[in-house]
């Protein structure tokens, strides 16, 4: 699909020029979709004006789209997420920013009780997206570092995505906006400006529910998503010198999960490590482990292992947070243990 509002002739620039940071890719996706479809509006705290959001994702949007489409909200997540549901019921496609994923709890009823159940109960579709800046590793403390994706995976009626690359950040946001259901889009704060990648100029939507093999390998599979994809890639490179060939499955969508890709890799390598920065206990990885136990048990050469955040609030001080999160070393060691099982 070609955005009809993009500003001019087809770019003849080199691929290098189309490298965007992860956060630029989010911004570009949103801008392109808003040019394409007048039903899309942005709603959230501090999203308007010159400021354009706590992370400047919507910087300049008010100038281009006007205050009518960039709705600056008072500190009322419960009210404005609910209001977005009403807008969606009337045919608009609100993109909600919750500033930090941690603050999503302030609108929890509006999400899990109302929006998520609505279509099942009486058939009213709720096509909104919540952009939730998540994850830590950058000393942001207990309330600006959380990964609450499992809460929403546990809620029927929601879709949950968590892109790991700039191209996916763009492509999954396009799909999330075009989807007719409530989608929670967990964007990764640690990747915002640290990660650049080639992003197609044309809006190429990445289908919701499709995982990606981020690295092909034969000895062991790491199933992961978000920032931990990159920690896993680093670990895989490190141990490749020791002759361990690691496959990495980037889930991209947590709900509905691409079970086929996960199972195909499990059957191929027979050894599975699951990694996420969200708390390990009852995290997304537990569901992956259960899936493999159910469907690929006879293919396993070793127990399924999981790495995740510890069962504590995300601590602030660097040594504590480092102890909380899986590291490249933790991942490399876990893989080595699996291959020598």
């Amino acid at each position: 699909m070609t955005p009809n509002g993009s500003s001019g002739e087809r770019s003849v620039a080199s691929e290098e020029d189309r490298k965007l940071s992860y956060i630029e890719a989010i911004s570009e996706a949103l801008r392109e979709e808003m040019r394409r479809d007048e039903d899309i509006i942005v709603i959230g705290e501090d999203v308007g004006g010159e400021f354009g959001g706590a992370f400047n994702v919507t910087k300049g949007f008010e100038d281009e789209f006007g205050r009518r489409r960039i709705l600056n909200m008072p500190m009322t997540e419960n009210a404005f997420i609910g209001a977005a549901t009403g807008m969606a019921l009337m045919g608009l496609r609100p993109v909600i920013e919750v500033q930090f994923a941690d603050f999503i709890t302030s609108g929890y009823d509006a999400i899990v009780q109302f929006a998520a159940t609505n279509h099942y109960r009486w058939g009213g579709a709720v096509p909104w997206v919540i952009r939730a800046p998540s994850d830590g590793g950058i000393s942001s403390g207990p309330f600006h570092s959380q990964n609450p994706e499992a809460w929403f995976m546990h809620t029927p009626g929601l879709k949950v995505v968590a892109p790991a690359t700039p191209a996916d950040a763009k492509g999954l946001l396009l799909s999330a906006i075009r989807d007719n259901n409530p989608v929670i889009y967990f964007e990764s704060k640690p990747l915002y400006r640290s990660l650049k990648g080639v992003v197609p100029e044309e809006g190429i939507a990445i289908p919701i529910g499709q995982a990606r093999v981020a690295r092909e390998g034969t000895d062991v599979t790491i199933v992961t998503y978000g920032a931990m994809v990159h920690e896993s890639l680093k670990a895989a490179e490190e141990i490749s010198s020791q002759g361990i060939d690691t496959e990495i499955v980037d889930l991209r969508t947590l709900k509905p999960m691409d079970c086929e890709t996960v199972l195909a890799s499990a059957r191929k390598t027979s050894r599975i490590l699951i990694v996420h920065s969200a708390n390990r206990l009852v995290g997304a990885g537990a569901e992956v482990a259960a899936l493999i136990a159910d469907e690929a048990f006879e293919s396993l050469d070793a127990p399924v292992r999981r790495l995740g955040g510890r069962d504590v609030p995300v601590p602030f001080s660097p040594p504590l947070e480092k102890a909380y999160r899986p590291s490249v070393d933790d991942i490399a060691n876990a893989v080595k243990e699996l291959v020598t099982w």
Partner: peptide, 12 residues
């Protein structure tokens, strides 16, 4: 909880 969707309809 339906107060806010009703307000959202008005905002639409």
């Amino acid at each position: 909880q339906s107060m806010s969707p009703a307000l959202g309809a008005a905002m639409a």
